[in-house]
Design a protein around this nucleic acid. Structure first.
Lengths: 124, 124
DNA sequence: CGACGTTGGTTACCAGTCGTAAGTAGCCGC
DNA sequence: GCGGCTACTTACGACTGGTAACCAACGTCG
């Protein structure tokens, strides 16, 4: 029963709360960037190299969203060349454990999912 | 140090694996539907009512994806009126704990995030 | 003293995805 | 036969993500 209470937590007010948050943090890049920043503060270009496949635009947009939501801090050093460092805030840090839980699940089940996917393709 | 090893798990092969899975399960509706189905098998219309805001099309598409990925099973009863029941597979069930972790985090931090969001709006 | 490179972006444009609304098919009660 | 119920499917417009090119400040090289 306690398990159901927990899933009620997800569905809560009809899922509106969760859906709103999920829309924000659960896009393709957010968790990846948060995980990368867990190593310590990074500059824009380093981040760009460490998250393969992301474009500058998406990196900028995702970082802006994270900054707006108070999950990362953005520090500009008025030097030459300009330097901008991004780091996790305490709130951002607190996202790491659940992100790890999801990542662990993904790694554990990816083979099964890919298999199902191909089987479905064949039998469609 | 062990915490960093775990985040390495997320970043893994440059995050490609995680990103692929996140693309699939981390969209707006998937976690919500999985959480709703944790209560037991449900019919299409019940699901439509229990997940407020979802359109028929999105429900159909999301369920197809979940079925393809082997997370839910789809059972058609050739009755009148027609009845289609959706239920979680064991793999689908196993997604519940990490989903709860994320949902718990979301609920815990939503107020902080919303506050940051509005503060940012003001100071932009 | 002007062209070039580096950093951290922004802008324009295009393709794919999402959401809304309407249509479909089989069968039932009226 | 007509509308209604269930479980979709389709058409179409809006929004979002991806690619690529451009921008601004400043130091350095020729």
């Amino acid at each position: 029963m306690s398990e159901y209470e927990h899933t009620c937590m997800i569905r809560g007010d009809g899922g509106r709360t969760i859906r709103a948050i999920l829309d924000r943090i659960c896009n393709k890049w957010t968790l990846l960037i948060v995980a990368t920043l867990d190593q310590g503060s990074l500059r824009f270009t380093d981040l760009h190299h460490q998250v393969p496949g992301i474009s500058q635009r998406m990196l900028t947009l995702t970082l802006r969203n994270l900054e707006r939501d108070g999950l990362v801090s953005r520090t500009v050093y008025a030097e030459v060349p300009p330097r901008v460092e991004y780091a996790l805030t305490p709130t951002g840090k607190s996202l790491i454990p659940p992100a790890l839980a999801l990542a662990g699940w993904a790694i554990e089940h990816i083979s099964h999912i890919e298999a199902s996917r191909e089987a479905y393709q064949g039998s469609r």
